Simulated scan of single mutants.
Amino acid sequence: MDFDFIKTAGLIVTIVGLVVGWFLLWLTKREKAIEKSINDKRDFNHLLGNQKQISEGISTGFDDIEEQIKHLRELMLRIESYLIRNQGTNHRE
């Protein structure tokens, strides 16, 4: 009878140990999955912020280009008006 009790107690201890081990393994995997999810969200938010900064930079670049084009148009109008005004004075008769 002592032998059956020892076998039964050993079996119960083994089963409890397996259940506890499985639970700890599951808990560890769950924590890693949660941490990965948080890291993925953080990375996505960083990428989203970078995309917004790039878009703002492109927008600012286009604004600068538009300003330069506007300045060039004004210069061309001045040159054109100067040429039209002085068109008759440069001809020798």
Results as ranks from 00 to 15, higher is better:
residue 17 G to M: 03
residue 57 G to V: 00
residue 82 Y to P: 00
residue 40 D to C: 02
residue 81 S to F: 07
residue 30 R to V: 06
residue 77 L to P: 03
residue 7 K to P: 01
residue 5 F to R: 06
residue 3 F to T: 11
residue 20 V to M: 08
residue 67 E to A: 04
residue 74 E to R: 12
residue 37 S to P: 04
residue 73 R to C: 07
residue 58 I to V: 12
residue 42 R to D: 08
residue 11 L to H: 02
residue 55 S to A: 12
residue 42 R to L: 13
residue 92 R to M: 12
residue 90 N to M: 08
residue 88 G to F: 09
residue 43 D to N: 08
residue 69 I to E: 07
residue 42 R to A: 12
residue 59 S to P: 04
residue 43 D to S: 07
residue 63 D to L: 09
residue 47 L to T: 02
residue 48 L to N: 09
residue 80 E to L: 06
residue 52 K to A: 09
residue 67 E to L: 01
residue 92 R to N: 13
residue 45 N to P: 00
residue 90 N to D: 05
residue 67 E to M: 01
residue 58 I to Q: 01
residue 69 I to N: 03
residue 62 F to S: 02
residue 83 L to D: 03
residue 15 I to K: 14
residue 76 M to T: 14
residue 12 I to D: 10
residue 6 I to G: 04
residue 62 F to W: 12
residue 13 V to I: 06
residue 63 D to E: 14
residue 38 I to V: 15
residue 73 R to N: 13
residue 35 E to C: 04
residue 41 K to S: 06
residue 9 A to V: 02
residue 81 S to E: 09
residue 92 R to D: 14
residue 58 I to Y: 05
residue 39 N to R: 15
residue 74 E to D: 09
residue 44 F to M: 00
residue 21 G to F: 13
residue 41 K to A: 11
residue 6 I to M: 06
residue 50 N to H: 03
residue 9 A to C: 04
residue 38 I to T: 08
residue 32 K to R: 13
residue 64 D to V: 01
residue 43 D to H: 03
residue 41 K to Y: 00
residue 55 S to T: 05
residue 77 L to A: 10
residue 46 H to A: 05
residue 34 I to R: 13
residue 80 E to M: 01
residue 67 E to D: 08
residue 7 K to A: 10
residue 33 A to N: 11
residue 8 T to E: 15
residue 19 V to Y: 08
residue 72 L to G: 01
residue 42 R to G: 03
residue 50 N to E: 10
residue 43 D to T: 06
residue 17 G to N: 10
residue 77 L to G: 02
residue 80 E to F: 07
residue 1 M to D: 03
residue 46 H to Q: 11
residue 36 K to N: 14
residue 25 L to P: 01
residue 1 M to G: 09
residue 54 I to G: 00
residue 21 G to Q: 07
residue 93 E to G: 07
residue 8 T to H: 05
residue 39 N to F: 07
residue 51 Q to E: 15
